[in-house]
Design a protein around this nucleic acid. Structure first.
Lengths: 130, 130
DNA sequence: ATGACTGCAAAGACTTTGCATCTTT
DNA sequence: AAAGATGCAAAGTCTTTGCAGTCAT
């Protein structure tokens, strides 16, 4: 194995994991997802690397769902749905955020707008049927 | 003092406090705001009553800012701006959420949409200048 | 008496951090 | 030798909860 690759093996595994899932996982969920392939990654390393990626803008945080921070490898602005029953987080790529909202927000607030989050809450299909 | 009033004096003070501020305070901020008028309210009571109001839909949570949950007495859907510098939360009443977004979200997801949060992030006026 | 609200302190949950170790340069 | 990544365990922060005391019905 190449040296540079080995050095960042765990870090890369964490980013790959986040990129390959659509679950918008928490640190603990990432840790669990990595368990089969990388059983020797500690939870502290997951937390540290998620913070590392986030500080570099490589991933983003959706904020906390049920008290737990959730992450997303997709840093483009897009819309989320959070199920209040099972706390699943879904992307809603079909819903578009009007660009006018951002500019109107900037004018209205006099603030420098950098980001935007549109989140719908409710019950997902399976939670609604139970 | 009337009996019924006395029984709910602290609970009412907490709701009044939330209604009278625009700061979208956390539990601790509510506690601090009440200090002058009600120095004998404990932080546990603030937490308990905020949860009580929230469970009855009398107030809403904006989610966590910098790891701390923030509350709002205005339960109508409206737009927020969160300053990433000082963690202030502002209302942006001038920005309207297109009603079409909600219906389009419901169609897109197949989920029962109950709520919606639109939050802009960035730097507020004073943080941008320092 | 019974039920409701509260303060206090303890417990709980999630996240961060200090330190020793190992690896790479 | 210096810098960086990691595991482990301890510490930290925010929030919830058990219990005893008080008040109203």
């Amino acid at each position: 194995m190449e040296a540079a690759e080995k050095q960042f093996r765990k870090r890369n595994a964490i980013l790959d994991c986040l990129r390959q899932t659509h679950a918008h996982p928490s640190a603990e969920m990432v840790h669990a997802l990595l368990q089969p392939s990388h059983p020797d990654i500690s939870l502290a390393t997951v937390y540290r690397n998620l913070a590392w990626f986030k500080s570099r803008g490589m991933i983003q945080s959706l904020g906390t769902v049920n008290g737990v921070e959730r992450f997303d490898a997709d840093t483009q602005p897009h819309v989320h749905f959070v199920c209040t029953g099972c706390h699943a987080v879904l992307d809603l790529p079909q819903v578009e955020i009007p660009a006018s909202l951002g500019t109107s927000a900037e004018e209205a607030s006099g603030c420098r707008v950098r980001g935007c989050q549109l989140t719908f809450t409710g019950l997902c299909g399976s939670c609604a049927n139970s």
